[in-house]
Design a protein around this nucleic acid. Structure first.
Length: 876
RNA sequence: GGGCGCUUAGCUCAGUUGGUUCAGAGCAUUUGGUUUACACCCAAAGGGUCGGGGGUUCGAAUCCCUCAGCGCCCACCA
């Protein structure tokens, strides 16, 4: 036999992927069918495939492949995200290794480098997705910086501005003094660091008395504009309404009252520096304090720093303490553990800094998005537990800071024409801006050279929140055929970590720009962790090489490995052993095919009854499994669906069906049987296809029969047919009997192939006895009520008693033990039932069905006990 | 600090509205097997007071309270 005993994935994966592409099986265009659409969560354009992507995209592929087989017009739109911050940082770093500093480049030059980088590395990840079998419509590939996509973003900005939802405001941002840029909150890593807490005294105006504040950042003293105390703090009641004097600058500042101050912490007196601390900023706004910024962008003090101007903030921290000492204002210092924000990129200590940013008002657009998930259930989150998190965020939503001080991204379409803060217009092009500026300023002399576009770009999410709409160009051409057909999409598969950043905002965008939901189901995967429960990351180096895994185990196996452990919303502890399990499974499938393929067919042989019965049993089993699998899919229990298929193939198909139908060595199989087996196998391959597309397609093509469509990928999902519960019950019984005979052999050290006979009593017929004979190596399975006369072994299944004559000493000790154990168990069980039934409360309160059930249990158990006891007597 | 969630077999997890023998699955482990598809195999076995305590109920893994441990999100103490 030339077929290898082990499945070799490499040999088939590329072949079939190419074949699918060549035949345009993944392509979708609007037609009469119902659409089933998924938009991919666009990975970073310069990213490389990691385990999270594998999980995510395998799931999407499973959903889309099944939908395709179900007859939907399946459309999976792929693409990549420009990922402003991450990409810009990478480019900056790369330039640095080439000896180029970003600060030395013009915006245009920098963007040229960035595009070069993007064109070189961009899309690598999409190629990697193909390796795991993703059936995206690649002709639709989008990039968030494509001109069409850009236009959508700009149009949306203009639209929102015109609706009065976008405004300019001041906000405290994370400033990286080393890179001289703002960072998003996500790029700030908080670390516990031990530092000092300095106690310093401030004079009270018009008094001899002082008050003592505690601070970790003495260098910001020069920016103090108030002292804050808790109004309930009895120690300081006498200070209400007074002023204090900031040492060194000798500035008089008010003593304000706010419950924000923790009486317990430090001295209960807080110095307020609104320009350098987010909390102080809100105090400053609330109490209308002055904002004094004492820092330059590079982290040195500015002119407000007086004689410290030009010195680094950390040097000033030390010297200012010394100066305070000499002034007699220093009281003491304590060790203090505090969290310090560090830049993820440069490791520099972040300075909170107030700057001008663009904001989007969220309250009004959040409303329909909140209702859709919590009230109408138009959009479902899977699992449901995320609804609460979603609500919490949406109800407390704050305005969205959409500007970033970066170059790589969609530049904010705001053009300034004058010196005033309000001298700007919002327009899609500079020409248009000129027109508007002339109108707004009533100055026709303004020319293009007078216009200056805002330097900032938009937050990356400000483009990705449009993704389900913009990939179909639904912003620019709101009535085009594609958007009307594909939108709203069906399922979105993504991680819970971007529920707010992305999912919630897409929902808001959907209702804001199309008045419709963007998708109806959101499947939130877990985060892939290693076995210690740590998040997989490059820094930790605990992330397995995704492509390496495919290389080692095969794409199908890796997909199975991931799916076996992935319950929606639960983090999964990734274990390479799961891939091994997937590989073993692939091999099992492969060998099932090898077995079938190796049989000689003889069309003159009649089909044995056992084979005919086995097919009946399997067919019913299949339909029951199909019902379960479909139900699991409905509930997005993908791993359960896979496990059901796994067991269907491994246990029911291989261990039972094939074992029954396998012709004896050297014999041939009849035509009917082989056709039926292939038919059943093909149905399983269909179920398998979404999970294991490559191996299923490979085997499909080898065993396919003439009247069957070309490719599995476009074949139809099996249609559920009603199954016969009685058949299944009898089949279960068969399995129990076979198992019992096998046990009997084992206990008595009988050889596998030694023929035995089986007699049974208490039941006139045993269904599918031919199957039992074949699998348990019996010459007959017959009814007899006289089996007790002969020597042999006995076992019981349900109420039926079985007897195997054996002309040889059998080990009755085992049997005695077993019967006694069972008797004990049954008697205890019976007792508990009888207790229950004699409990008047139970009889009074429990529903009739439950009571009847208990009665039936009691009588069944009594019967069993009676049988066992008579058995016991006979053995003795 | 605020909010949410979790705790079931050695591991990863199922367990619908409380009610059949409901305590489950896969993997792992142990034992036994195989000249006739697959040792990436076959057949079987062991293994859990459902985190602790209390309550509601005729009846609790399931509902309530409480304690302990773990995790996530948000806001962060000068």
């Amino acid at each position: 036999m030339s077929i290898p005993t082990k499945f070799v994935p490499k040999a088939v994966e590329d072949k079939w992927y190419r074949y699918w592409l060549e035949n345009d099986y993944f392509k979708s265009t609007p037609d009469k069918r119902m659409p089933y659409t998924i938009v991919i969560p666009p990975p970073n354009v310069t990213g490389v495939l990691h385990m999270g992507h594998m999980l995510n995209n395998s799931l999407q592929d499973i959903l889309i492949r099944r939908a395709r087989m179900q007859g939907f017009n399946a459309c999976w739109v792929p693409g990549t995200d420009h990922a402003s911050i991450a990409t810009e940082a990478k480019v900056v770093e790369k330039l640095k290794t080439d000896g180029i500093s970003k600060n030395d480049l013009t915006r245009e030059d920098f963007l040229k480098h960035a595009w070069e980088w993007t064109n070189e590395y961009g899309g690598v990840i999409l190629e990697q997705l193909k390796k795991i079998g993703c059936s995206c419509d690649w002709d639709r590939t989008k990039f968030t910086l494509d001109s069409e996509m850009s236009k959508s973003v700009i149009n949306v900005f203009i639209d929102l501005y015109n609706r009065g939802l976008i405004y300019k405001g001041y906000r405290m941002v994370n400033w990286d003094p080393q890179a001289q840029t703002t960072l998003s909150d996500e790029e700030v890593i908080y670390q516990e660091k031990s530092g000092n807490l300095y106690y310093l005294s401030y004079k009270i105006e018009g008094h001899d008395e002082s008050l003592i504040i505690a601070t970790t950042r003495p260098e910001t003293i020069l920016g103090d504009t108030a002292i804050c105390i808790n109004p309930k703090d009895d120690r300081y009641k006498h200070l209400h309404g007074k002023n204090a004097i900031v040492p060194i600058v000798e500035r008089s500042i008010p003593i304000i009252l706010d419950e924000y101050v923790d009486i317990e912490f430090g001295t209960g007196c807080l110095k307020v520096t609104p320009a350098h601390d987010p909390n102080d900023k809100s105090l400053g706004e609330k109490h209308k304090l002055d904002f004094i910024d004492v820092l330059n962008p590079d982290g040195t003090l500015n002119s407000f720093g007086l004689h410290y101007e030009g010195q680094d903030r950390f040097i000033v921290r030390k010297s200012i303490v010394k100066e305070m000492e000499s002034l007699g204002c220093f009281v003491k210092k304590e060790n203090h553990l505090s969290k310090v924000g560090l830049s993820e990129r440069t490791n520099a200590i972040i300075e909170p800094r107030i700057s001008e940013q663009w904001f989007l008002k969220m309250k009004s657009i959040a409303k329909p998005a909140l209702e859709a998930v919590l009230e109408t259930n138009e959009i479902q989150l899977i699992p449901k537990k995320f609804k609460k998190t979603y609500r919490h965020w949406m109800e407390n939503i704050t305005d969205w800071n959409i500007s970033r001080q970066l170059w790589w991204g969609h530049r904010i379409p705001v053009y300034y024409y004058g010196k005033d803060n309000d001298d700007f217009v919002v327009a899609e092009s500079i020409e248009k801006a000129l027109e508007l500026a002339r109108v707004k300023s009533k100055n026709l002399n303004i020319s293009i050279s007078d216009l200056r576009q805002d330097d900032d770009v938009l937050d990356t999410w400000f483009s990705s929140w449009l993704w389900p709409i913009s990939v179909f160009d639904g912003i620019n051409k709101p009535n085009n055929e594609e958007i009307n057909y594909y939108y709203p999409t069906q399922d979105l598969v993504t991680g819970p970590d971007i529920l707010f950043f992305w999912v919630a905002r897409m929902i808001m965008a959907g209702y804001t720009f199309r008045d419709k939901l963007p998708f109806s189901k959101v499947y939130l995967t877990g985060i892939v962790r290693d076995q210690k429960g740590q998040k997989m990351s490059k820094q930790l180096g605990n992330s397995p090489d995704a492509l390496g895994l495919i290389e080692e185990y095969g794409a199908d196996a890796v997909r199975v490995g991931l799916m076996l452990s992935s319950v929606a919303g639960n983090d999964l502890l990734f274990d390479e052993n799961l891939c091994k399990q997937g590989k073993n499974f692939a091999n099992k499938i492969w060998n099932a095919y090898r077995l079938i393929d190796g049989w000689k067919i003889d069309s003159k042989i009649d089909q044995p009854i056992a084979s005919k019965d086995a097919i009946i049993c399997f067919d019913n089993t299949f339909n029951k499994a199909l019902e379960t699998i479909n139900d699991y899919f409905e509930k997005y229990k993908i791993s359960d669906a896979l496990m059901t298929i796994y067991k269907l193939l491994w246990d029911d198909f291989c261990s039972w069906l094939l074992e029954v139908m396998k012709p004896d060595y050297g014999s041939s199989i009849d035509k009917v049987s082989i056709d039926q087996i292939k038919h059943q196998f093909q149905k399983i391959l269909k179920l398998l296809h979404p999970f294991m597309p490559f191996i299923s397609e490979e085997i499909w093509h080898i065993i396919k029969q003439r009247n069957i469509s070309d490719s599995l990928v476009i074949s139809s999902w099996p249609v559920f047919e009603k199954y016969d519960k009685i058949v299944l019950k009898n089949y279960e019984n068969v399995k129990l009997i076979v198992g019992a005979v096998r046990n009997f052999r084992k206990e008595n050290n009988l050889r596998q192939r030694e023929l035995l006979s089986l007699f049974y009593s208490n039941s006139k017929t045993i269904e599918f006895s031919e199957i039992i004979s074949r699998l348990a190596q019996l010459d007959k399975v017959v009814f007899s009520d006289e089996n007790n006369q002969v020597k042999g072994g006995v076992f019981r299944i349900g109420t039926n008693e079985f007897f195997i004559p054996l002309d040889r000493k059998i080990d009755s000790k085992n049997e005695l033990n077993r019967i006694n154990n069972e008797l004990n168990h049954l008697e205890g069980f019976l007792n508990s039932i009888l207790n229950k039934l004699s409990n008047s409360q139970f009889v009074k309160n429990a529903p009739n069905a439950v009571i009847n059930l208990e009665r039936k249990k009691a009588s069944d158990t009594k019967e069993k006990i009676k049988n066992l006891k008579s058995r016991l007597k006979n053995i003795k």
